[in-house]
Design a protein around this nucleic acid. Structure first.
Lengths: 200, 200
DNA sequence: CGAATAGGTAATTGAATGATTACTAAGGTC
DNA sequence: GACCTTAGTAATCATTCAATTACCTATTCG
């Protein structure tokens, strides 16, 4: 009920931009590129819809920036894990780090929505390239064999799917859902379950 | 240029319905639920847009019917493989059968788009249930261990992702894409490559 | 045959939504 | 303290799209 002149918060464009990117990541992650509206994103970021559009030019460019940011965070995270040593358990540690990225709401789901848009001439090209960047990292920097990469990414896609499906909503009510989550998220299960609270 | 009275093809509603479902599967698979329009689907099926809407009531119901049809085919396919014997190589045979479903254009991709819509109250509930039906089949009918199911489904989701990304478009131009496809699709690689021709 | 039924379409509408335009106010700087 | 740049909004436009309405015309069947 905004009673008195709360000093309307003005930010430097750079900070506001990051704020909008975060909000957009969440909304795109939940509804996908076509399902999300610039107005939803604007409201989530606490700014007006025209401002969102003007900051990024088009909705498509905003989505591309969201994807780029997500990819950057993903690789940055993996590089961080790698920097802590490349032992036997590197795959496990990176897997755990991957699941931890779920706390950055919508980040992995936005990527997943991007992956499903391969036939879009612009977004498809960018997401293909992004996927291959990750593949290249795992092969050349992390030193995985093709087979190790396959298993690692496959499990990542399974995690994405279960999160996208909100399978955790059924954790308490459906034993199969519980088993499914337990086997797919060896550790960090509690993290996924915790996310249930924060959504909706 | 329709010169003379080609006898305008009239079908029994049942056949037409299946035709529209096929077309819708392709369009939803390519563009997703929000990205696809009923007009695109109508054109792909060779009927008018209002007729598509009237046949299914709403776009949402059409998508639900597409998902149900896809799930039915998937389980039917798996049951067919299982009926041919449950040896050591059951997982491999079912994996091959799964990839062969890619010839049913958009079927697996429509499911994947559905999986990304877990937060939709209607579609989410249906896709969660569908996913769990498959999980249940693999555990209880196919006799997989939880770990076997995890690996099987994870690989399926990887296949979906690579197809959704149209990674095969880069097969000839990017060695990493080639390696990636080769390792993820042990057999039936030629099938995925053949699909490149038929699209666009 | 004649009429009912089934398989459709053309025209239109109303709402949603991305984008544009025109404006306003804050705050640093000289 | 005028000034100009930066951060933002309100109003509105143009399109797209799902849905509705009002028809039309083959085919079936008594």
């Amino acid at each position: 009920m905004r009673t008195e002149a709360e000093p309307i918060p003005r930010m430097r464009a750079e900070d506001r931009r990051e704020l909008v990117l975060e909000a957009a990541t969440g909304v795109f992650g939940e509804f996908g590129y076509f399902g999300a509206t610039t107005d939803q994103i604007a409201k989530a970021a606490g700014v007006s819809q025209p401002y969102v559009v003007r900051m990024f030019g088009t909705k498509e460019q905003l989505f591309l920036d969201v994807l780029q940011r997500a990819l950057d965070r993903l690789l940055e995270t993996f590089r961080g894990v790698l920097a802590q040593g490349a032992g036997e358990d590197l795959g496990l540690r990176m897997g755990t780090a991957y699941v931890e990225l779920l706390t950055d709401r919508g980040l992995l789901l936005s990527l997943m929505h991007g992956f499903a848009m391969g036939s879009d001439p612009v977004i498809g090209a960018v997401t293909r390239d992004g996927f291959l960047q990750v593949y290249k990292f795992l092969r050349e920097e992390a030193g995985f064999t093709p087979e190790q990469v396959r298993m690692f990414i496959a499990n990542g896609m399974l995690v994405n799917t279960l999160v996208g499906l909100r399978m955790s909503d059924e954790y308490d009510t459906n034993p199969l859902a519980k088993e499914c989550l337990c086997v797919a998220l060896p550790e960090k299960l509690e993290l996924v379950l915790a996310l249930r609270e924060s959504q909706r």
